[in-house]
C-alpha cells in the first residue's frame, strides 16, 4: 500500500544556500509527524516542497503514490505562517470562497459549521483585516481544514492561539488522525499536543533524522 506522502532525496537551495540536502520522509494514514529543528533549518521549505508549492532542485515528491497533480491538490490542506486570507472579505466570505474553490457540495453548511468550530460565528460578517492575530489564525485553520484533507501540512498552527483554541486544535488533530489523515506538523509549542502520539523527526543539515518525542 502506498504512503500518503513520500519524499525521496529532496534537495533545495534558496539562493546560494543549500537548505535541504537529501531529505527523505514518509507519512502514512493516521500518522502525525512532528518536524523539529532550529530556526532557519529548512522546516518551512520542506513543508512547501512537500505541499507542492515549491519545486525541489532534486528528489521526488509523491502524494497517495502518485506525482502531485491538480486533482490531488484537493486532497491536501496547508497552513503556513501566512493565513492566505483576504483582508477585504469577511470571515464568512473567505471561507465560502475557499469552499467554492474546493468544490464542496454543501459549501454554505460547511462554512457555518467551521465558523462555529473556530468560534467565529458571531464575527462572521466582520472584515478579516479587523481580526486579531489569534482570530485570523483560527480562521486560517478553518480554511485549511474545511475540505477535509487527507494530508495536512501545518507550520506553527498554534501560533497566536489562546489556551482554549489550542486545546480545540489538538482535539481536531486527534480526531483527524483517527479518521486516517496524515499530518506533517512544525511547531515550537510541544506542550500543546503532548497528548498526541507523534513521530518526531529532526531536520539537521538538510536531512531528516529521528528525533525525541515531546
Amino acid at each position: 500500500m502506498s504512503h500518503l506522502l513520500e519524499l525521496q532525496g529532496i534537495q533545495k537551495s534558496l539562493g546560494h544556500r543549500s537548505v535541504l540536502n537529501g531529505a527523505d520522509l514518509t507519512i502514512d494514514a493516521g500518522e502525525i509527524v512532528w518536524l523539529v529543528g532550529p530556526n532557519g533549518s529548512g522546516k518551512t521549505t520542506l513543508i512547501k516542497v512537500a505541499a507542492g508549492m515549491s519545486t525541489p532542485g532534486k528528489g521526488t515528491v509523491s502524494w497517495f503514490g502518485n506525482r502531485p497533480s491538480p486533482r490531488l491538490r484537493a486532497r491536501i490542506g496547508v497552513l503556513l505562517d501566512a493565513s492566505f486570507l483576504y483582508g477585504e472579505l469577511t470571515a464568512e466570505e473567505n471561507l465560502f470562497y475557499y469552499a467554492r474553490i474546493y468544490g464542496l457540495q454543501d459549501a454554505r453548511q460547511k462554512v457555518q459549521e467551521w465558523l462555529e468550530r473556530v468560534r467565529l460565528h458571531r464575527d462572521k460578517h466582520v472584515l478579516v483585516k479587523a481580526f486579531s492575530k489569534g482570530m485570523k489564525q483560527r480562521l486560517a485553520i478553518a480554511r485549511a481544514f474545511i475540505h477535509q484533507p487527507e494530508v495536512l501540512f501545518l507550520d506553527e498552527p498554534y501560533d497566536g492561539l489562546d489556551v482554549a483554541s489550542s486545546q480545540h486544535l489538538t482535539a481536531w488533530l486527534k480526531a483527524m488522525r483517527e479518521a486516517g489523515t496524515g499530518i506533517l506538523l512544525v511547531s515550537h509549542e510541544d506542550t500543546a499536543f503532548r497528548g498526541l502520539s507523534v513521530r518526531t523527526l529532526k531536520l539537521s543539515q538538510g536531512r531528516l533524522i529521528k528525533g525525541e518525542s515531546p
Partner: peptide
C-alpha cells in the same frame, strides 16, 4: 495581503 496569492498554488 497575508499571502493570499500563495493559495493559488494550492488550487485543485
Amino acid at each position: 495581503w497575508d499571502g493570499a496569492i500563495y493559495a493559488a498554488t494550492l488550487v485543485p
